[in-house]
Write a protein that binds this DNA or RNA. Structure first.
Length: 583
DNA sequence: GTAGGGTTAG
C-alpha cells in the first residue's frame, strides 16, 4: 500500500489536471478512498494550492457523502480565494442548511474573506451574529476578518469599535485597521493608529510600511515618507516589491520625482505596478515624454500594460500638450492590448484636446462617444474652457451639465471664472444666482504644509492658527516684494470675483490675499531656512491669482515651491511654473 | 493538517 506521504509528495509536483486525476485514480486503486482524511487532503490541495484546481475540487467534494467540517472548510476557503467569492457564501449556506456540520473559527475566517471580496455586507453582519453566539469573537483571525469586512463596506466606526474591543491585538490586526483607514482615505487616522501601534510595542513589518506610505502619498507628507523609507532600509524590507512600488508612488505624489526615479532604478524585482507607479507619477507631473519613454522600456521587456498604465500615459500626454501621441496611445489601448477605455480614459482624451485648445476636437470626441451623457466629460471640457477663456464652448459645456442635472458649485464657479476673465459682470452674477437659487453646496478649500514632520492645515481667511498675526504680516511683505518684482493681481478679482478656486473661497470678495495656499506659503517662508523647498498640498485647483503670485515668490525669495493641487503638480522655480501656465 | 494583513487610476 502506498503511504499517504507518497501521495502528498506527488501532489507537490503536480501542475496539471491530468496528473491530478492520475493521483486520484491511484488513491482508488490502493483502496485509500474510503479513508476520509486522504480524500480531504486531496480536496484541500485542489482547493487551496496555487497549482491546484478548484473545478476538480468541486467534483471531489460532490463525491464525498457526508463531508466533515474540514472538507467544508477546504472548499469554502478555495472558493473564497477564487474570482467567484460569492460561491463560498453559497457553500456556507448549504452547509448550515443541509449538513450536520457546525461552522468553526476557520469556517468563519474563510466566509468573512469571501464577504470582504464580494462586498456582501448583509452576510457579514449575519456572520457577526453567529460568531458572537458561538463564541468565536475572541479568535484573533476571525475578529481581524470582521474588522476588514466592516471597513471594506465603509462602516469604519464599527470596524474601529471591534478593533478596540479585541483583547490581544497582534501585528495583523493592527495592519488591518491601518490599511482600512488608509483605503477609505482617513489618512490622519491611519497615522494615529500607527502612533498607537508603536506605543503598544508592536513592531511594524512590510505590510505596515506599505499602508503608511500610501497615506503619506495622499497627505503629501514627504518627511514622514523619507523616515519610512529609512525604516524599511534598516529592517530589510527594500527587496519587497510592494514596498518599492509604494515608495515610488509616495515620492511622486509628494513632489520628489528624483527620488521616485532612484527607487525605481534600484529595484531588482519589478512588476506591472512598479511600471505603473512611475508612469502615473511622471504623468501627473506633466512629464509626458518621459512617461512614454518608460512605457516603451516596459513593452521592450515584455511587460503587458493595463488600464492604469494608459491613464498615466494619457494624462502625461495631456499635461505636456502631446496631442498626437495621446491619440495614438488611446487607439493602441484597444487595438493592441484589447483594453476597453473607461470613463477615466475618455476624460483624459477630452482633457488632451481641451488643454491644447482644440475645442472642436474635444466637442466632437464627446459627441461621438457612448458616454456623451456622462457629466464628467462636459466638466472636463469646461475646465479647459477656463484655461483658454473660451466663453462660447464653456456655455455649451455648462448647458450640457444643466441638461444632465448635475451642475455643481465647482462648475458654476468655473463658468463664473470664464465670465469674470472676459469682464462679463452679468454672467458672474447669473452664476452666483444659480448657486443660491439651487442651494448647491460649495466645497471648502484647504491647503497644508508639512513643517518638521507636523502638518499645518489652512482654510480660506484662516484665523484659527496660533501664529496667524505673524503669517498675515509675512504675507503683506510677500505681496509687497512680489509687486516690486512685477506682480499684478489678476483682473478677475477687480470685479469682485475671485478667480478659479472651485470653492467657497471663490465667493469671498476681497480676501484674495488670504487664500489657503497663500497662507501656507507665507507660513512656510517664516518657518524654514532660506533656500528650503516649500511643498504645499491642496484639495482644489490652484487659482490663477495664487498661481501668478507663487511664480513671483519663487523668484523674489529664491525658493523652489512645489504645489500639488487636485489635478497635477506645479513646480515653481525662478519665476516660472512647470505647467507653463496651462493648468 | 486548516486562517487573517499590502501598492498604482483625470
Amino acid at each position: 500500500m502506498i503511504k499517504i506521504n507518497n501521495f502528498l509528495t506527488s501532489l507537490q509536483g503536480c501542475n496539471s489536471m491530468q496528473k491530478l486525476k492520475r493521483i486520484h485514480a491511484q488513491i482508488f486503486v490502493n483502496g485509500c478512498h474510503s479513508d476520509p482524511s486522504i480524500v480531504e487532503k486531496l480536496l484541500n490541495f485542489c482547493s487551496v494550492s496555487v497549482s491546484g484546481n478548484l473545478s476538480y475540487a468541486r467534483i471531489l467534494f460532490s463525491q464525498i457523502e457526508n463531508p466533515r467540517i474540514s472538507a467544508w472548510n477546504s472548499i469554502i476557503r478555495g472558493s473564497s480565494q477564487s474570482p467567484y467569492p460569492l460561491e463560498a457564501i453559497l457553500l456556507y449556506n448549504r452547509m448550515i442548511q443541509d449538513s450536520h456540520c457546525h461552522p468553526d473559527n476557520y469556517t468563519f475566517s474563510f466566509l468573512l474573506k469571501a464577504c470582504f471580496k464580494a462586498k456582501a455586507d448583509k452576510k457579514c453582519r449575519e456572520a457577526h451574529g453567529s460568531i458572537i453566539r458561538l463564541g468565536y469573537l475572541s479568535d484573533a483571525s476571525v475578529s481581524t476578518n470582521l474588522v476588514r469586512c466592516y471597513g471594506g463596506s465603509g462602516l469604519v466606526e464599527t470596524a474601529k469599535k471591534l478593533f478596540d474591543e479585541m483583547h490581544e491585538k497582534d501585528l495583523v490586526a493592527w495592519n488591518s485597521m491601518l490599511s482600512c483607514y488608509s483605503q477609505v482615505g482617513l489618512h490622519t487616522e491611519a497615522m494615529e493608529i500607527y502612533g498607537r501601534m508603536r506605543t503598544s510595542n508592536v513592531e511594524p513589518d512590510e505590510f505596515t510600511v506599505v499602508s503608511l506610505l500610501s497615506s503619506c502619498a495622499h497627505l503629501g507628507a514627504l518627511r514622514f515618507g523619507i523616515e519610512m523609507h529609512k525604516f524599511a532600509e534598516d529592517n530589510g524590507f527594500i527587496g519587497n516589491v510592494f514596498v518599492g512600488n509604494a515608495l515610488i508612488d509616495m515620492y511622486a505624489k509628494c513632489g520628489d520625482l528624483e527620488r521616485a526615479r532612484q527607487v525605481f532604478s534600484s529595484m531588482k524585482k519589478k512588476d506591472l505596478s512598479t511600471w505603473n507607479s512611475i508612469i502615473v507619477g511622471l504623468g501627473v507631473h506633466g512629464c509626458g515624454a518621459e512617461a512614454i519613454w518608460f512605457f516603451r522600456q516596459m513593452l521592450g521587456l515584455g511587460v503587458r500594460p493595463n488600464a492604469i498604465t494608459f491613464i498615466g500615459l494619457l494624462s502625461g500626454c495631456s499635461h505636456q500638450g502631446l496631442v498626437n501621441d495621446g491619440i495614438a496611445y488611446f487607439h493602441m489601448m484597444r487595438s493592441e492590448f484589447w483594453l476597453n477605455p473607461s470613463i477615466k480614459h475618455l476624460g483624459c482624451m477630452v482633457d488632451l484636446f481641451g488643454r491644447a485648445g482644440k475645442f472642436e476636437d474635444a466637442f466632437q470626441f464627446i459627441e461621438n462617444t457612448e458616454a456623451r451623457d456622462d457629466p464628467v466629460l462636459w466638466r472636463t471640457l469646461l475646465s479647459a474652457c477656463r484655461i483658454h477663456r473660451n466663453v462660447v464652448m464653456g456655455e455649451v459645456a455648462m448647458r450640457n451639465l444643466v441638461r444632465l442635472s448635475s451642475q455643481n458649485a465647482g462648475d458654476c464657479v468655473l463658468m463664473s471664472g470664464i465670465y469674470a476673465d472676459t469682464g462679463d459682470r452679468q454672467g458672474v452674477s447669473r452664476m452666483r444666482k444659480l448657486i443660491r437659487y439651487q442651494g448647491i453646496k460649495t466645497n471648502p478649500g484647504w491647503s497644508w504644509i508639512e513643517i518638521d514632520g507636523i502638518v499645518h492645515k489652512f482654510v480660506v481667511d484662516d484665523k484659527s492658527h496660533t501664529d496667524i498675526k505673524e503669517i498675515h504680516c509675512k504675507l503683506k511683505e510677500v505681496v509687497h516684494k512680489s509687486r516690486l518684482a512685477g506682480y499684478v493681481e489678476e483682473m478677475s478679482s477687480s470685479i469682485g470675483f475671485q478667480s478659479t478656486e472651485e470653492s467657497s473661497e471663490a465667493w469671498i470678495g476681497n480676501s484674495n490675499n488670504y487664500h489657503s495656499e497663500k497662507l501656507a506659503i507665507a507660513f512656510g517662508l517664516t518657518r524654514t531656512p532660506p533656500g528650503t523647498t516649500l511643498r504645499i498640498v491642496k484639495n482644489l485647483r490652484v487659482c490663477r491669482d495664487c498661481h501668478q503670485l507663487t511664480k513671483f515668490i519663487s523668484k523674489a525669495f529664491n525658493r523652489e515651491i512645489v504645489v500639488r493641487d487636485r489635478v497635477r503638480f506645479h513646480h515653481f522655480n525662478g519665476g516660472v511654473c512647470s505647467c507653463r501656465d496651462f493648468w
